[in-house]
Design a protein around this nucleic acid. Sequence first.
DNA 1: TATTGTTATACTCTATAACTATA
DNA 2: TATAGTTATAGAGTATAACAATA
Lengths: 169, 169
Amino acid sequence: MNGRAMEGDGRSAAKLELETFLPYRLNVLASIVSQGLSGIYAKRYGIGVPEWRVMATLGQFGAMTAKDIGGHSHMHKTKVSRAVAILEKRQMVQRRANRQDLREAFLSLTDAGRAVYDDLVPVALTFAADLTEGLSRSERAELEALLAKLMKRGLTLLSEHAAGLGDEG
Amino acid sequence: MNGRAMEGDGRSAAKLELETFLPYRLNVLASIVSQGLSGIYAKRYGIGVPEWRVMATLGQFGAMTAKDIGGHSHMHKTKVSRAVAILEKRQMVQRRANRQDLREAFLSLTDAGRAVYDDLVPVALTFAADLTEGLSRSERAELEALLAKLMKRGLTLLSEHAAGLGDEG
DNA sequence: TATTGTTATACTCTATAACTATA
DNA sequence: TATAGTTATAGAGTATAACAATA
């Protein structure tokens, strides 16, 4: 790979190795995994990550408002809105008015959407299982716990640093 | 809502909880972390992730060709090329011709680039340390090992599924 | 006035391929 | 012919703000 000579003679106080640097690793790993999984549902149903997240959320919770979907799946309201519009056009998601508050609506999967969801869930679970194939049961548990801790901590750091903040994809 | 049953051991229905689903978690976590870190060097020096990766690679290895930078930092050659062009324009990176092969050139940090690098490295390391603040030494080691395993496994899965493959950011 | 949700706009990425110059 | 690197182009994705409807 890289047989280049180094001249890292310690001019920098501490050294940073990109390949083991946590933010870099998370980024590369996430993008590899995302590419692998989204490739599957893109190919099967022509949907992207936001649409998948909306379906997964509705599949899990049944009926929700767009705001709740966004809160639960870490997506901005505009992203949710567009994903829902795409899924409605394909008749995978339906909306039912909330008579108590006409600004919002309850969204849910249609029968067709539920069928797609039921088709995709085992594929997604298999994908994740394949990914952790080499890990023991305890390693898997440890991984879950570590990721949960990191996410919580990351959110804390973000909100400390920048008070107002949007979202990501 | 309705626990869909999957084939397998009869006890637990195969449901997918987005918030604990590994690909989702990795994506959200990576984007939180990336947002936090890149916000810092974007604010200080107006550079983005690709530029930062080029600097980190050159800071670590001294002099490299664009191709080797790309291989080491998981970036496509066009992304490396543009990042290098930006860094050259800001006189943070310089190039030296390779007389053995004039198609390529050895890139390295200028003194100014090294100064920026030396400024950013401790900030980046502190950021990563902050992120893992609540973890014990052994948890940190476990995290590193797990991420390395997942990345290797993910790359294997990707290359199995899609023979030709590009890159990510 | 505040909130839910949609739409418009502009901007940034990204992927691809075409291109150059060397080999 | 193949490789290192650059540039062009087009498409996707993103953020922001403006907006409409309702509270």
